[in-house]
Design a protein around this nucleic acid. Structure first.
Length: 289
DNA sequence: CTGCGGTCCTGAAGGC
DNA sequence: TGCCTTCAGGACCGCA
C-alpha cells in the first residue's frame, strides 16, 4: 500500500518523466475513480509534482491540479513512446528501458484511467478501486484533507509528538497512523518505527516517556528515509510498483512487518502478530516494551 | 469532541 | 474438485 516512501518514490520518478509535458487526453475507464471534468485538465501543461502525506499532487498550468490517492492498490505506470523506433507499431519503453510492465499488457484489467501525455501514456491501475483522482483548484489543495505535519518538516518535533500523545490513551500505533496527527505514516512504517524505537504497538500513547518519544520520532524518520532509499516496499499481496514498472525493495529489510512466526533479526525471538484497529500488527516480544 | 464499527472492493485462502 | 465464506486494508461516514 503506498505510504509516504512509496508516494515519494512515485513523485520522484514522475518528476523526471512528465514535468513540462502536456496532457493531450484522458480516458476514464471507471467513472467513480476520476472525480471532476477531464476537459478541465486536457490541454494543460504539467508544471510540477508534489507529495502531501500519502497524496500525490500533479500541478498543472493555470490554477488547476490533479490530486491522487492510491489507497490500497493504486499504481501509476508511465509508458514512454520510443521516439527512435522505426517500427510501424511503436515499441514502448519505460524511462529509456524497453522492459515489459510486470509481464502484462497495458491497459490491464485493473487500469481505471489513462492519461495521454506528450511522448507517452500514464496508466492509473487500481485493483480494489479504493483510490481516487480529483481535479482541484490550487487554492483548494489544503482543504482536501486535514493532515498533520510531514515527518521531514521542522514542526515534527519531540514537543509536538509529546503534546498529541499526551491527549489520548489510544494505542500508540493507531496514533502514528492517524493522518490528522502525522501525515504519511501507514501500517508498514508504523510497525517498523515502533520496533526500531523498542516500543510495544499497544502501549497507550499518553504513557510514553520523553525519552521514548524522542526515540520514536527518530525511528519514524529513519524508517521512512530507508523506505525511500529502497524505492518503497512491494511486499506480498501489495500492489505497489514504481512508475517504471519495477518493484521497490524495502520489503527485504522489514524488521517485523509480515514476519509473524519468523525470528527477530536482533534477538532471534519469534515475531508475533495481533489485530489492532483492524490492522495487522507485528512486534518482537523481547525487543519492544 | 472522541472513539468505534461498518463500508467500499477484489482475489486469495481456508473449510467442508 | 468445487462451491461458499472469510479476510485484508486507508479513510470516510454515521452513531453513541
Amino acid at each position: 500500500m503506498p505510504e509516504l516512501p512509496e508516494v515519494e518514490t512515485i513523485k520522484r520518478v514522475l518528476e523526471k518523466a512528465i514535468v513540462g509535458k502536456t496532457i493531450k487526453n484522458i480516458e476514464v475507464r471507471q467513472a467513480k475513480i476520476f472525480q471532476g471534468e477531464p476537459r478541465q485538465v486536457i490541454g494543460r501543461k504539467i508544471e510540477g509534482i508534489e507529495r502531501r502525506g500519502k497524496m500525490l499532487i500533479i500541478k498543472l498550468s493555470g490554477d488547476k491540479a490533479l490530486a491522487v490517492h492510491f489507497k490500497l492498490t493504486g499504481q501509476m505506470v508511465w509508458i514512454e513512446e520510443n521516439p527512435k523506433s522505426k517500427i510501424q507499431n511503436p515499441k514502448f519503453v519505460i524511462l529509456g528501458h524497453p522492459i515489459p510492465f510486470a509481464g502484462t499488457e497495458l491497459p490491464a484489467k485493473t487500469t481505471r484511467v489513462i492519461f495521454e501525455i506528450d511522448g507517452g501514456k500514464l496508466f492509473y491501475n487500481d485493483l480494489r478501486q479504493f483510490g481516487w483522482i480529483k481535479v482541484v483548484k490550487l487554492d483548494q489543495l489544503d482543504q482536501l484533507d486535514q493532515l498533520g505535519p510531514e515527518p521531514f518538516d521542522k514542526e515534527f518535533t519531540t514537543e509536538y509528538l509529546g503534546r498529541i500523545f499526551s491527549r489520548t490513551s489510544k494505542a500508540i500505533k493507531l496514533v502514528l497512523m492517524d493522518q490528522t496527527k502525522i501525515a504519511g505514516v501507514g501500517n508498514i512504517y508504523a510497525n517498523e518505527a515502533l520496533f526500531e524505537a523498542g516500543i510495544l504497538p499497544t502501549r497507550p500513547a499518553k504513557k510514553l516517556g520523553n525519552e521514548e518519544i524522542k526515540k520514536l520520532r527518530e525511528a519514524i524518520i529513519k524508517v521512512l528515509e530507508e523506505g525511500i532509499k529502497y524505492g518503497g516496499s512491494s511486499a506480498k499481496d501489495e500492489a505497489y510498483i514504481k512508475p517504471t514498472g519495477e518493484p521497490g525493495s524495502y520489503q527485504q529489510h522489514f524488521r517485523v512487518y509480515q514476519r509473524a512466526g519468523e525470528k527477530c533479526r536482533k534477538c532471534g525471538t519469534i515475531i508475533k502478530r495481533i489485530n489492532l484497529g483492524g490492522r495487522g500488527t507485528f512486534w518482537c516480544p523481547k525487543c519492544q516494551k
